[in-house]
Design a protein around this nucleic acid. Structure first.
Length: 810
DNA sequence: GGTTAGGGTTTG
């Protein structure tokens, strides 16, 4: 196991092996011997778990060394740690910000982000069997074993807890309940019902719990608000309830909540994360509680209390006539009649039985009224009846659900809304009325394991029109990129009529259309991934080369030095560096004679023998730097994966395919101003243009639509791609724009409505099939939308108003 | 300061 939790001050449990010795993070250099070394630090930043492929993850975190006696200096105490695979997953689940961790079995790499984040110049990499993380859990303070825990962080300082009056809770075993007493209990859930409306004022949850005393106790929980009910997702979950009253009913003891009731739920998996599920703003949770949960987990796992196979299955395993639970994503919904609503869901797997097709009027469907043929084949139609309608109506499109006790019904049944006859083995799914067998629907939290698994499977499905914004499909973008730009003509007039997204999809191509829509999601979420290099000659698009790759080209070129001759038009000036890394390296300046007079402000130098880092630093002092290398006594440009020109903070790249480089005098032929175009032309470089490329998902009342933002991206944002590549302010401006159009974590109500012009055009996919693509054009952000505005969606869309926040530049 | 429900498949 590469992941251990250590309890501070506890003599039992996993320990850090004695042969490992700790070194200070500040002492890590390339020459450090890492054998049997560990580092220790506090988690000061914890990145998200990123899925690279099914069962392959990556996670980045920053740890900071705190104890000063070990630090050789106060420099470089914070370091990026990159975790891979299972370890990344365990870390994501088991470690919180502020936790103290020890890392062992790591390797090092140069940090490509050192200039940006100012952290340690190296990264620690943790992958493979040798990699290991130990997490320290603080021991409770001796004078008060109770800690006040906040929802997100598991501990608070002892000082705070001393100031706060903390009640001490005692818990009664389920075998020791006496009628009439108000108690606190722990239990493992062996049965539960979703909250349903009672005849009184509240909703009612029914659960049955058990513990080591082997009593099964039925609990009735009445709460007005749904969020105050126990958040139970599956049998085996562990609940802790405060202030429940024991009473006799039908010869046995049962529990009912009483005044001051609160409940916290934990996952029941042995070794699972201790993430509490509760609506309480603060609750008490100490070491004893942790231990109680662990004990219940391990006791339950030894008891065969419930079926070993979960009731939740994938669509691919559904048997006709069976009842099952389904984890799925909601794609669309439509009311059928006063007792029934249709939910269209998928889990990314294909049911072996043909699924029933349902025809519903497009204008009553919420979400897309149809999907690609391939996607339609794996979408399940779920009919939801009676008491579940309330819940179904509130569900948001795109949310992840668990539907309990779904029935797979073969055949036709006289379902309203069906327009044609269906053969008997077509499966439809019914969530029948009533609450028997826990029937109901629950929205799964985004961070749950079930949702993580669903997302992995759904990401693997070929990208269609409604995937979540995780699956940046670069090859799809590339295809579009290769579309000749002349297909994208300008529109005729800015006051053309508005149309809905679903009308747009029926329209002829190569015209400009005017729509009003909200931005539902966009890709890529990281701005640097939206920056690409475009060759106007061969119309290819490429990624901006990786920092480490470029550094490698520089270091290879400088280590490969051989004496060479200066061309007649230049002066060669070589000297030895005093760099501590490689003190005897020759650093060579090649100065074009005609540009020497004012080389710093308007001139150009050729530079040989520098590292990438040194080139950056020199670029601050020289207007134009062209890195060169020696090659068989000749001087040549570097490989074109590296920038061929540094101009201040900007770097310029050339197209490998279209360039025929040659070293020539840039000052020839009376050139007055030296810029990247002049230099590229003289050196035979086909200049690559820095561009922005994003994929946006628009939504209106009728449909959703994916559109690209590229040739008009710069005018849309009012920021040049080149600036976005070179300076932080430009990047911030784009980020703020996107966040105002698509507020992170906000509901769709908070997304402003946008007036946009779109062009439609065709391109070919992998197999030569025509596909229609859309692109935003002629649209400019005219003022930054204020935060937290909640415009009402127009339905049908009204004509464009001068007050709209985004409008056409016309 | 406390009614509601008190598990055990719709009938589409």
């Amino acid at each position: 196991m590469p992941f251990h939790v250590l309890l501070e001050g506890m003599g039992t449990g996993p320990q850090i092996p004695a042969h490992l010795t700790r070194i200070s993070i500040s002492l890590i250099t390339t020459s450090t011997d890492l054998t049997n070394k560990v580092v220790k630090g506090k988690v000061v930043q914890k990145g998200p778990l990123v899925s690279l492929a099914p069962d392959n993850f990556i996670l980045k975190t920053v740890i900071q060394e705190e104890d000063s006696e070990l630090n050789a200096s106060s420099q470089n105490l914070s370091i990026n740690v990159v975790l891979f695979g299972e370890l990344a997953k365990n870390f994501s689940q088991g470690v919180n910000q502020e936790d103290m961790v020890v890392a062992a079995g790591f390797t090092m790499s140069k940090s490509p982000t050192v200039r940006k984040d100012n952290l340690h110049p190296f990264n620690l990499l943790l992958s493979g069997d040798d990699a290991c993380i130990y997490v320290f859990r603080p021991k409770p303070p001796p004078d008060d074993r109770s800690l006040l825990a906040n929802r997100r962080s598991s501990t608070l300082s002892a000082e705070v807890s001393r100031k706060t009056k903390v009640p001490k809770y005692t818990y009664v075993r389920l075998g020791d309940l006496t009628a009439g007493s108000v108690v606190n209990v722990y239990g493992v859930v062996v049965f539960f019902k979703q909250p349903f409306k009672s005849r009184g004022t509240d909703s009612c949850s029914i659960l049955k719990i058990t513990d080591q005393s082997n009593q099964n106790i039925t609990c009735s929980i009445f709460c007005e608000k749904l969020e105050d009910h126990p958040k139970i997702f599956q049998i085996g979950d562990i609940v802790r309830m405060h202030r429940v009253k024991a009473q006799f009913f039908k010869d046995s003891i049962s529990l009912v909540n009483t005044f001051g009731f609160s409940v916290v739920t934990f996952d029941g998996t042995v070794g699972g994360a201790m993430e509490p599920r509760t609506s309480s703003r603060s609750f008490h949770f100490n070491q004893e509680d942790r231990q109680t949960v662990e004990e219940l987990r391990s006791w339950a796992s030894s008891q065969a209390l419930f079926p070993t196979v979960s009731a939740a299955i994938h669509l691919s395993a559904v048997q006709p006539k069976s009842y099952f639970d389904l984890n799925c994503q909601l794609l669309a919904k439509a009311p059928i009649d006063s007792t029934c609503i249709l939910l269209r869901v998928w889990d990314g797997t294909r049911c072996p039985h043909t699924l029933l097709k349902v025809n519903v009027e497009p204008n009553v469907t919420e979400g897309p009224s149809s999907f690609s043929k391939e996607k339609e084949n794996i979408i399940a139609n779920v009919f939801v009846y009676d008491n579940h309608l309330d819940c179904a109506r509130k569900l948001k499109l795109g949310s992840f659900l668990r539907i309990y006790n779904l029935r797979a019904n073969p055949g036709h049944s006289n379902v309203p809304g069906l327009t044609s006859s269906h053969s008997v083995d077509h499966l439809a799914f019914h969530l029948h009325g009533g609450t028997s067998y826990g029937r109901g629907i629950q929205v799964l939290p985004e961070d749950s394991l079930d949702v993580q698994e669903l997302k992995r499977v759904l990401e693997a499905f070929p990208h269609d029109d409604m995937n979540e914004p995780f699956d940046l499909n670069d090859s799809a973008l590339l295809e579009v990129w290769s579309t000749p730009p002349e297909l994208l003509e300008r529109g005729d007039s800015p006051d053309m009529p508005l149309m809905t997204l679903s009308e747009l999809k029926q329209c002829e191509l190569s015209r400009v259309h005017h729509v009003r829509a909200q931005l539902r999601s966009y890709e890529p979420r990281r701005l640097h991934q939206a920056l690409k290099l475009y060759c106007s000659k061969c119309t290819s698009m490429q990624e901006i080369p990786d920092e480490e790759l470029v550094a490698g080209i520089f270091s290879e070129a400088s280590s490969d030095y051989e004496p060479c001759n200066a061309p007649p038009w230049a002066l060669l000036s070589a000297f030895l560096t005093d760099s501590p890394v490689s003190p005897d390296r020759a650093l060579t300046l090649l100065l074009p004679r005609q540009l020497m007079s004012d080389v710093k402000t308007k001139g150009l130098i050729f530079l040989m023998g520098t590292t990438l880092e040194e080139t950056y630093r020199l670029a601050a002092s020289y207007q134009n730097i062209v890195p060169v290398r020696s090659s068989g006594r000749e001087i040549t440009l570097l490989d074109l994966s590296a920038p061929f020109l540094f101009r201040g903070r900007k770097r310029h790249y050339g197209c490998k395919q279209c360039s025929e480089t040659v070293l020539r005098d840039p000052s020839a032929e009376g050139v007055k101003v030296i810029d990247e175009k002049v230099v590229a032309e003289v050196l035979g470089v086909q200049l690559l243009q820095c561009v922005l490329l994003m994929k946006l998902e628009l939504q209106d009342a009728t449909d959703t639509l994916e559109v690209f933002l590229w040739t008009h991206a710069e005018s849309f944002f009012g920021v040049s791609a080149e600036d976005a590549a070179a300076n932080q302010e430009a990047q911030n401006s784009i980020r703020q724009t996107m966040e105002s159009l698509c507020p992170p974590g906000g509901s769709m109500d908070q997304h402003p409505w946008l007036d946009l012009f779109l062009t439609a055009y065709q391109t070919k996919d992998d197999v030569g099939q025509n596909q229609t693509c859309y692109q935003i054009c002629q649209t400019t952000l005219i003022k930054p939308p204020p935060q937290n505005r909640t415009p009402t969606p127009p339905e049908p869309p009204p004509p464009p108003s001068p007050g709209s926040e985004i409008t056409s530049a016309g």
